[in-house]
């Protein structure tokens, strides 16, 4: 087990290096430079800016300096768009906001999605199931761009239960977390239901029932852990998406999170910031994926860690 974990770790580090290199190259291939403005900057000003941010050096030299800074000092460099800010600083203030909203959303999604999925499987064929599945389909298909303003309209402007936006108290976190959670929760419900349906027909469940276990015990103790496998696989990428923040949710609720930099930084050709946020996202993804692998093995003895 330990050897396997170490192997996974090594793989992850290599993968991250590849990702870093790829993004480093790709952002530089985008047409237009970071200092292009509507009012054309005189060549001398552009040259001075490029010199300041070491963009005038040969590309391999830039890459070496940047890698050394990253690996040795953990320093992602300055941003080009926000003078006097470093990428590390920006991530340090924005990531915690996204992590808080994201973990709350993840908890919500699991708390709602899992029970609904299990009930959907157990109740298959009943009218309640149809209602449930309709709700889940709706949850999967309504984009957050629509869901967010609806939540604001009903719960903030209409009922006055929560603030319309901003990031101040715990009450400010509820609506954005809900908005982020619902589509993911609905997905979980569907996966859990499908997984459950597969398992409920399996031989070992029939055996469990034959042993005289109640339906409740058979479902919860024997079927559920196995049925969770597809949910767990899905959770790796889904959770990392939630944890780094969504640009849509952040805009609607005016949260100072990290999600918006995925779009802004690329549009601004803010090379270091793009690589920075992509690396953070990739790291979280890699770690959660590894965790999901381990969890799947523990849940279902039929799979093995490879």
């Amino acid at each position: 087990m330990i050897r396997l974990l170490l192997k996974k770790l090594l793989e992850s580090v290599l993968l991250l290096l590849v990702v870093a290199t790829l993004v480093f190259v790709l952002v530089r291939l985008l047409p237009g430079g970071p200092f292009d403005r509507e009012r054309a900057v005189p060549p001398a000003v552009d040259a001075a800016l490029r010199a300041k941010y070491r963009l005038d050096a040969p590309i391999l030299g830039q890459y070496r300096d940047w890698m050394v800074d990253l690996v040795v000092h953990g320093n992602l460099g300055p941003t080009f768009k926000y003078p006097n800010r470093t990428v590390n600083e920006i991530i340090a203030v924005s990531l915690p906001v996204s992590l808080q909203i994201g973990s709350l959303a993840l908890a919500l999604a699991l708390a709602v999605g899992l029970p609904l999925g299990v009930l959907g499987a157990v109740w298959r064929g009943r009218p309640a199931n149809a209602v449930l599945m309709a709700a889940v389909t709706l949850g999967v298909s309504i984009p957050r761009l629509v869901l967010g303003p609806l939540l604001v309209l009903v719960f903030a402007l209409g009922l006055g239960l929560f603030p319309v936006a901003r990031w101040e108290t715990w009450r400010h976190a509820i609506l954005p977390a809900l908005c982020a959670a619902l589509p993911v929760g609905a997905h979980i419900a569907r996966l859990a239901r499908t997984g459950m349906l597969d398992v409920l027909g399996a031989d070992f469940i029939r055996t469990a029932r034959a042993k005289g276990l109640s339906e409740r015990q058979a479902v919860l103790r024997h079927a559920l852990p196995v049925a969770l496998a597809p949910v767990v696989s899905f959770l790796g990428p889904a959770a990392s998406g939630l944890l780094v923040g969504s640009v849509v949710v952040e805009r609607i609720f005016d949260l100072p999170g990290m999600g918006r930099y995925f779009v802004d930084a690329a549009a601004n050709r803010d090379y270091n910031l793009v690589t920075g946020v992509v690396l953070v996202y990739a790291s979280i993804l890699v770690v959660l994926d590894a965790l999901a692998d381990v969890a799947r093995t523990l849940l279902d003895r039929r799979t093995e860690l490879r």
Partner: peptide, 18 residues
């Protein structure tokens, strides 16, 4: 000074007196 990116959000915050 609030940095608000979305116009609708700004309008909502104005409406609620923020």
């Amino acid at each position: 000074w609030m940095a608000i990116e979305d116009r609708h959000t700004a309008m909502n915050l104005y409406k609620t007196g923020e």
